[in-house]
């Protein structure tokens, strides 16, 4: 029972991280129709920016996280504005552009910080005792920040003019453009928002997990899985799917061991792609 609850807490904490990553990924696909292969790169970059801000500049951790968000959001917005924008309707070209960026980011991190994982630990340590359960504080902080970020994003997308404009562009770019939405302005903002979320996750999570130049590899794979599960482009689907993926991963590692959990997820995703490319929950879909 104990084991079950502990795994559940790990699951929901993983789910919250994955939700932030998947939300960014799905926003980019939903609005621009671009598969962002660099998503894991922004995660790793966020981790390193936070690490450098703490260890080199001596910033307190919250400010370091903020710096990571700003840096990754700015890079994402600029990359969209000056490179992706030109070829935004060519799905193959945009994949190559983001894949290229990923290779450049991870090599850049390697060149600057070296292959070793740096010493970077979460500033809040200790455990919270609830009955007979011990909850690691760091996980709770991450969970709280992720939940707040998801809530803020939800408000942004569904309660502001900016969000309405983004959703209109996702629905039908042509119609939205004729109604005065400006893709030239909104696309970079949306892209930056999404990469900023990846950077935020990286800055929060890499002190707990591990920081390395290739930390983005598994992140990209998880984002793929989550987003396909929830339906490419679907916002609510991404959150629900992220929680499912988090739980499956947490419980499978406890009860099944090894790679079985991953295999189950991959096969599920394969079946979904073949039978129902709109995902388990999504209706929103772009032409493939």
């Amino acid at each position: 029972m104990h084991e079950f609850l502990t795994a559940g807490i790990i699951g929901i904490s993983l789910g919250a991280q994955y939700a932030l990553l998947a939300l960014g990924f799905t926003l980019i696909f939903g609005i621009l129709g671009v598969i962002n292969f660099a998503h894991g790169g922004f995660y790793a970059l966020g981790g390193y920016v936070a690490y450098a801000a703490v260890s080199q500049a001596g910033l307190p951790f919250p400010l370091a996280v903020l710096a990571a968000v700003v840096a990754t959001a700015a890079l994402g917005a600029l990359y969209e504005r000056f490179l992706i924008e030109r070829l935004v309707d060519d799905h193959l070209a945009t994949m190559m552009l983001t894949l290229g960026l990923y290779l450049v980011i991870s090599t850049g991190l390697l060149a600057v910080f070296g292959p070793q994982s740096p010493e970077f630990s979460f500033p809040v340590q200790g455990t919270l005792r609830a009955g007979t359960l011990y909850l690691p504080l760091e996980n709770l902080v991450v969970l709280a920040v992720c939940a707040a970020a998801i809530g803020a994003l939800w408000l942004l997308i569904y309660r502001t003019d900016f969000g309405r404009a983004l959703r209109a562009l996702a629905d039908d770019r042509k119609v939205a453009t004729t109604q005065g939405m400006r893709p030239g302005l909104l696309f970079p903002l949306a892209f930056g928002l999404a990469t900023g979320l990846a950077g935020l996750t990286g800055a929060l999570v890499t002190p707990i997990l591990a920081l390395s130049p290739s930390a983005g590899d598994p992140v990209l794979v998880t984002s793929f899985l989550t987003v396909i599960l929830g339906g490419l482009g679907s916002i609510a689907g991404a959150v629900v799917a992220a929680v499912i993926v988090g739980f499956v991963e947490a419980y499978a590692s406890v009860y099944l061991g090894g790679s079985t959990g991953a295999l189950i997820l991959f096969v599920t995703v394969l079946v979904i792609l073949l039978a129902r490319p709109t995902g388990l929950f999504g209706r929103e879909i772009r032409g493939a």
Partner: peptide, 17 residues
């Protein structure tokens, strides 16, 4: 050898553009 990946990335971006 790891740096080759970065070169690949740059070339990929360049070729695409």
């Amino acid at each position: 050898g790891q740096y080759a990946q970065g070169l690949f990335g740059l070339l990929l971006i360049l070729v695409t553009l």
